[in-house]
Structures are given as structure tokens and as C-alpha cells.
Nucleic acid binder design. Structure first.
Lengths: 123, 123, 123, 123
DNA sequence: GTGGTCTAGACCACG
DNA sequence: GTGGTCTAGACCACC
């Protein structure tokens, strides 16, 4: 389900958050489906359950999961996070684009790269 | 010259590196101009000179500064870092663009945002 | 593990870097094996842990080590540094060979020395 | 006569030593010819005469110059330094060759590089 | 316990 | 005065 990279500088729980978020956003984990328990996922990744709990808590705060007392954690419906995610990622994209502009990249270079990213033909 | 953000979780020296890199890349600090001494900038930011030293050292490794022992640190000529910076920032831009695409942003949305960033008229 | 030479004019951290690099390149320290902690190696060499930290950081930047926060520093797999090291050392070798030629050493003298270094029979 | 590189990490006097040594070894400065005075060379390089004096002193210790009180510094005859220089450079060459071998460079690679350095045809 | 960061204070070579 | 190095001691996040 997830592969951890121990050489990554980020803390483990953050990697778990990122990977799970990816799986949810991409639709690989369906809304309202049950997440593995912190204990089982901890076993699977050879990681302390506390670490998984921390990841789940953060995902809950960001609206990707909801917890049902005594039943476990579940994937939140898309409506909960879709717009927030888009806004967040767009803000970041604008920031990076600003940097790219400052570093001397031209509009044409970025427009081309954008087409390529979306598999459009080059003009 | 620089304002530190103490709420930022990144280490101080990294913030300093980032801000100075910005100033250099944007041209606010001219090539071969002298940087403030580690002691004076440390005073100004209420930070230990060693911390500034660390920032300067990293900037030197990345090609933005050069040190003349006993004389001070100086901004490196643009040719030293321009290409490397462009490549680095483009790689990051492509990564973020990929994320944006995965999060459901359309080609048109990003193309519009790109035009806006460069002050082009919307189509 | 390491012996420091206090008559050496180079900084301590650089000596540590050089000795450890030797140990790694020669295979005495195996890939993915754990390095001593900055504190323990500092004790052993009667040197401040910060100094060891600095050496480890540089070795990490050069691709010889990788750090796992909270777990320790580990020797990087050979593929990470082998090629870079060969290129670096060859460049240095060519430089020194050029000097030797300028100083009046003949091709024959160096060819003989080369055979000796590799344990070949003299022609 | 000499061009200094202010971005070089080595101290100025050491650069001066190295450049003058090169000029002497290569024969550009003839034995028993008079060196420029510390003051004039200092002027020429925009450097403190003390710095030049330091370089001259070191060159004298290494046998490349001899001082005549009140007359100035002169290039020593080749016999004074030729053998010492060869020995020194050969020792360094053997050291670097050992490193190259340890780093995984083969005898054939180095033999080829050696031929190239001396303009020999490859086998 | 581990790496990572930071401070305060000190010493040195260099020019 | 400048960069560079080093020490001693401290705090933090992570696991």
C-alpha cells in the first residue's frame, strides 16, 4: 500500500500523510471506505502505531479522513476536501511560478512545459 | 535588509539563505558587491554570527557568494548561478504542476493563471 | 577507528572527512552499516560532537553517508558515490601528473612508478 | 608577470609562492637573475610588501631563491632545487596514484591517461 | 538516544 | 576587522 523512504529527510508521519493523501486524491481509496487500523498499518510498515495515529490525526484535520469512535477511520467524501485541495495546490503553483519568473524563465518556456505536462501538442 | 519569521518552522540559517538567494537572483544585490559581515548581519537580525556564517557557507557552495578571507563575502557573478538556478526552479515547477494536475486543476485554469502571472491579457 | 594528527594544519572536521571517506571508499565500512553517533565518535576522538556533526554533514552532501533522523548516520550504497569519486580522483591525478612532467620527470620514470604501484613487473 | 585570484581559498602569499615557483621551475626566470623588490612587486600586484616578503622567505627556505643583503633576491641555480623538487612531486604523485587505485581506477586507465599526458600514441 | 539547530564565547590566520 | 574553526552547553523533533 505504501513504501517508506527512510532516507527522506521528512519525518515518517509526514511521509505517511503525503502518501495517503495522494491515494485519496487520486481516488485509489474510495470515499467512506475504511482505513486500516493504526495498529495494522503500523505493523505493515514496521513503524510505531503512534506514528500512524499522528498521520491519521493530521489527515483528519485536513479533511481527508473522519474518525468514528470505536469503529475506526474512514475516507471523507470528495466534497470535503476537493475545493480546499485545489485552492492549496493552486496557491503553491502560483508561488513557484513567481519564482520561476524571477529566475529568468520566460512565459514561452513555461507555456511549453505546461503543454507538455498535459500531453498537449507543442505549438 | 531581511526580516526573519519566527513562526516559520524552518531553521534560521535556511531562512537567511532563502531570502538572500532571492535578493541576489532578483538583482537587488549586484554581482561583486560586498555582503554585510557575519558579525554585523548577525547583530542586525539578533542572531548569532555562527548562524549567519552557516548561511553564507551554504550560499557559497551553491555558487551565489564567494568569500575572500579577511576581506568579506561578495556576490558571485551571475554567470556562476544563473543556469543552475533556472534548471532547479524549472524542475520544481514541473513537480508542482504535476501535483496541480493530479488535484484536478485543468489545463485552462493553469494556462490562465500563467498568463496572469506574466501580466498577459486573458484570451 | 580514526587517529587525528594535531600537527596537521587542516581543520579537524576536514581530517575526519578525509579519513572516513578513505574507510568508505576502501570498503572497510560497508554500505548501509551504521556509523558511530556524533556523540560517541566525538568522545572517542576527544572532540566536540558539533565538529563530528559537521564532518558527517559534509560526507552526506558528497554522497558518502545518509542520515536517518533519530536513528543515526549510515554508509550510502556504493552506486551513490563510486562514479563521482573516480572522476574526482582522476582529475586530481591528471593535474599532479602535469606538475610532475613540468618538474622534469620523464614518461619512463612515471610509467615505472605506475607499474610498481600496481605490483606489476618492471619491463 | 603574475595574476592573483582573489577567489582562491589559499592565502595570497601562498599563491605568489606557487606562481613564482612555477616560473622558476619552467625556466621563465633564469638562474642568478634578480627578482623584483618586495616593494615593486607589491605595488604591481596591489598587495602589501609584507605579503611578498613572506613569499620570498618561503621560496628561500625551499631553495628557489637566495637573498643578498642590501642587493635583493635572486633566482637560485637549478642544481639547488631540481632534485628536491623532483622528489617532492614524485612523492605526491605516488600518493595520488595510490588514491586512484583505491578508488577503483585500473592500471590500464591510468597508463592510458599517462600516455595522453605525454602526448604518446595510445596502444 | 539520535540528529539537528542555536548561542555565547573564544582563538587563529590573513591582510 | 574579516572569515573560519572549535568548544561547551543547551533545546528540539523524532521514534
Amino acid at each position: 500500500m505504501i513504501v517508506l523512504d527512510y532516507r527522506d529527510k521528512r519525518p515518517i508521519y509526514e511521509q505517511v500523510v503525503e502518501k495517503l493523501e495522494r491515494l485519496i486524491v487520486s481516488g485509489a481509496l474510495e470515499p467512506d471506505s475504511k482505513m486500516p487500523s493504526v495498529r495494522s498499518l503500523g505493523m505493515e510498515l514496521s513503524v510505531n502505531p503512534n506514528t500512524i495515529q499522528r498521520a491519521y490525526t493530521q489527515l483528519e484535520q485536513e479533511g481527508y479522513l473522519y474518525a468514528v469512535s470505536g469503529r475506526g477511520n474512514f475516507v471523507a467524501p470528495e466534497s470535503e476536501w476537493r475545493e480546499g485541495k485545489k485552492r492549496k495546490v493552486l496557491t503553491e503553483w502560483e508561488e513557484v511560478t513567481k519564482n520561476a519568473k524571477e529566475a529568468g524563465l520566460s512565459y514561452e518556456e513555461l507555456a511549453d512545459a505546461l503543454k507538455e505536462a498535459f500531453g498537449k501538442e507543442q505549438s
